[in-house]
Design a protein around this nucleic acid. Structure first.
Lengths: 347, 347
DNA sequence: GTGAAAGCGCTAACAA
DNA sequence: TTGTTAGCGCTTTCAC
């Protein structure tokens, strides 16, 4: 590994000079000839700085800590991690990934990350909810993903849940549905409530009254299937907005058993269906795919902007790779999901 | 942040002594009284070593590099990352995650990881295949995941593809199927060939002749669906072994259109179905879930064992967390998939 | 047994 | 404009 020392020797200057030049702090402090000489030698030798060594002095490691809960929801975590990684990479950062079991373990993992001197933290949940920020994270740069804090103190990136429900319901209305059902989840987290609000609002705006019998909140497996079955019998919906993929499939299953075809007899919009459903299997099923990759991407970008105290707009994006375009995939088979960016209140 | 210096001051000894004690190299070199004193103060002050600082001298960062291809297969990557993270965590390592677009970008990312001084690399593919190890990785501790190299030079963890096909076919035979189809993929990677071999062998062992018309290799979307449809017409299979979830669902779809019920009229075993299928939706569908988490876990554990030059057996597993038990989930609805561990040939 | 000193690669005051 | 010096937190000889 080639060090500044070697460059200094070859160039016949001191290490400090090399340091100045290679950190682009040489303007008016080092003669251009010398500076160029140093740069030449550096690139010739293939010099690459040792970020760990410099971190010792600067206190900056250019490493980001990614904290996720490691429940069985790995598909989502994967997308976020990859997205965050992409942004980190483009902005010259590394991503250290850590997953937690419970709150105890969480504190430990945060401590471990801190020992490694991560410059900031990404704190990810697997479904949009209000979280209380762990104590140990309060004094460092931090961005919440798929979550917000109650107080608005912390920066966050989350899906626009309201518009998911709103757009989905609009789509069903446009398809001519008369009795649009909402098949939701049981826990009243942000995602649940937001999507349901969107559903209600879209109906209201269309001048429809909301029939409460068309709204169900179901859990999983057989009980859920039974509940959806019951919904079919009781209210005979011709349109369904489903909280997530599992719920969409209870609908699919019930429809299949009745000989109803999605896209002809009934319409279904489901959030977050696995790609394998959406792309290849039931093209009649309209989906809202949660932009986990994008969430990770923008959360990491935002974190870096906080760390470097500059605005997202004038980050040092590499020429080669423009920042990721906003998701924009509203096709007949998919509904676009926007992200909401919240800044931290405290400066 | 509390440093050795502070401990030294409080204990009235030198930093070197503290270092010796805290690294458990004090036997016969430091008086027990002093050693205990140091340890007491350390724990009292909540001392935690700064791994980056020590890396400067030792050359060991206790960081592992995880390299994956960032194609749209994020669900798999996520599981592997989380698994690797778990093992790393248990063994006192951190995981740095990096994803690549193509070979060019790959070399860059490897270089970046090396600058951060990662002690070794995990190189993950998203479907078991033979890879040529990137030049830059040849001289460092390395474990391939869901991949092997052609030469057997590199340590690896991969699923036992042969037995996946073998066990799945056995299961179908046990279910009384007479005409068992193989619905495979088009590219002849290790996973494809291995599973098909298992299928053929199981049939042969059962004294069945292999009917080539029951074997199809299909791509995606409509053409694939058409091909599977054709398979139903031409060979009227009563059992299906499907290469993966997408393939399983072409079968599901064709069956549905014919009014055939899985588990009654036909039997289906599919590899790697998304959990949402397997758990909640088509319980009649038998699945082989590829143990991505476990693959990540064991690959990371193996990598650490290579780095620390000890056997997997006598690693420093924390008391709190026993190493992950081998997957053992062969239920009527799931087939257990074993992992194959290969050591590197060169010492 | 213990401590002083050097040094890992780099940055940052300060002198020159 | 440049070099010297000191030091980040830690490990490691080597002298005492």
């Amino acid at each position: 590994m080639v060090t500044m020392k070697e460059i200094a020797k070859q160039a016949g200057v001191s290490v400090s000079t090399v340091s100045l030049v290679l950190n682009n702090r040489d303007e008016g402090r080092v003669r251009d000839i010398v500076a160029n000489e140093v740069r030449d030698i550096a690139s010739q030798l293939g010099y690459r700085s040792n970020p760990l060594a410099s971190s010792l002095r600067t206190g900056r490691t250019h490493m980001l800590g990614f904290i996720s809960e490691d429940v069985a929801t790995t598909p989502y975590a994967g997308g976020m991690i990859l997205g965050a990684q992409r942004a980190a990479q483009q902005l010259g950062y590394m991503l250290i990934v850590v997953s937690t079991d419970g709150p105890r373990n969480e504190a430990e993992e945060i401590a471990a990350l801190k020992r490694y001197g991560t410059d900031g933290f990404l704190y990810a949940k697997m479904s949009n909810r209000i979280v209380t920020v762990p104590e140990a994270l309060k004094d460092t740069p931090l961005v919440l993903m798929d979550a917000t804090d109650g107080t608005g103190e912390t920066a966050s990136i989350e899906p626009d849940e309201f518009h998911i429900g709103y757009d989905a319901t609009k789509r069903l209305l446009a398809a001519g549905c008369e009795r649009i059902a909402y098949v939701g989840a049981e826990s009243p987290i942000v995602a649940e409530r937001g999507r349901m609000e969107g559903y209600r609002t879209a109906l209201a705006e269309a001048g429809r009254s909301v029939n409460e019998r068309l709204i169900v909140h179901v859990g999983n497996n057989e009980p859920a299937l039974a509940a959806v079955n019951e919904l079919f019998d009781a209210a005979q919906p011709d349109g369904f907005f489903c909280f997530n993929d599992a719920r969409a499939w209870y609908v699919y299953e019930c429809a299949a058993r009745r000989g109803l075809t999605i896209g002809r007899d009934i319409s279904v919009v489901g959030v977050d269906n696995h790609r394998v459903f959406a792309d290849t299997l039931v093209p009649q099923l309209t989906t809202v795919e949660l932009p986990h990759f994008e969430m990770g991407y923008w959360a990491a970008a935002k974190l870096v902007s906080i760390i470097e105290e500059r605005s997202l707009a004038d980050m040092d994006w590499p020429d080669t790779a423009a920042p990721l375009p906003p998701m924009n995939t509203s096709t007949p088979a998919a509904i676009h999901c926007a992200l909401i960016e919240k800044d931290s209140v405290r400066k």
